[in-house]
Design a protein around this nucleic acid. Sequence first.
DNA 1: GAATCGTGGCC
DNA 2: TGGCCAAGATT
Length: 399
Amino acid sequence: MARKRSSTADDHQERFEFPRGWLARFRRELVRWYAAQARPLPWRASRDPYAIWISEVMLQQTTVAAVVPYFERFLARFPTVQSLAEAPEQELLRVWEGLGYYSRARNLQRAARTIVAPEAEGGLAGQFPQTVEGWIALPGIGRYTAGAIVGFAFDMPAPIVEANTLRLYARLMGYADDPRSARGQRLLWDFAERIVPQESPGQFNQALMELGSLVCRPVDPDCRDCPVNSCCRALAEGTQAEIPMAAKRPVITDLVEHAVVIERDDSCLLWRWNPGERWAGLWDFARFGAEHLPAAESASRTDLAEAVRKALGLAVEIGDCFHELTHGVTRYRIRLRAWRARPLSDGTKTAKNRTPLTSTRETLWVPIAELGDYPLSVSARKVATVLTKRSRGLFDKAW
DNA sequence: GAATCGTGGCC
DNA sequence: TGGCCAAGATT
């Protein structure tokens, strides 16, 4: 790739060198294209920093299609930073349920509380940060998100690099090495910084991502109809299919767990994932890893009952497997089988709804009709849906 | 730098 | 259908 070193000996900065006329042409053609092709996404209709902040956090590692309904529900339920700051965590997680990466929701609320807190308490007295540095100081906001927010909300010229622009820049530069390495990141951010115009930088950044998303796609990029194909080094060299270099992906291993739906009257037992656990803050049916159970695949009822007794101090009678779920998680493929169980005795007597147990997790008996009020893991929600239908007589399939 | 954190859609 | 991908941040 084209690069140059500055003349000073102690400056080892390397950067992509723009060919003559490149930048003006690139900006002009991109802006022209975006004016005609921009999708009307909900957050593009707003310049409210709060709404833009929420959308950007939701969009972290999440597809546009998945975010749209969550974004609209979230703003309806928490229309202001004050309402978010004051929300019970359970309600917040209930709105976030199914979106994944739940620490995003908790960080969002931590940041909201910082924003509304008085200055005397280290807060921002209800004012949003006005700079990239100010936004980065808030939890859950990194360099990309901060740049995106100040660009879209305040029309400030800040560089952005995320999945779409990483791919776009790497191809424009013809950068065949790893764009995720430290060196690659330096080059990309430097590139991003130099292409952002002073005029309408927010729109320009939107246009960059839109082009990356719709035209400069990961597979089968539409170079023929690309408005800046004359600016693209990868296309000139025919390397657009090899750039950017593929990311290393973690090995996925199978993890089989058994979820036990313990019923008593019209209620069932939930436990809550602890801080630091995978679904921290969410409720779930008790799960038991198959690796701890002999004859796991056949999952003898005796083994499950014993696991429940040990973990929850609850003697149960295990019934049938009623549901099987498979879903991919970052590093595991979980096969979750849910079994029904009826408690024979809980061994102790304490407060009405609490189950006292040896479990290190909080547990709770929840009426099946009220399962909708609790934030559940996705797999637990699927099981809960089955239970709810059954309790309404809508689901007749026997256990 | 590497690992971790979720889920759904697509081919 | 299994691998790849998604408006990243945090530790």
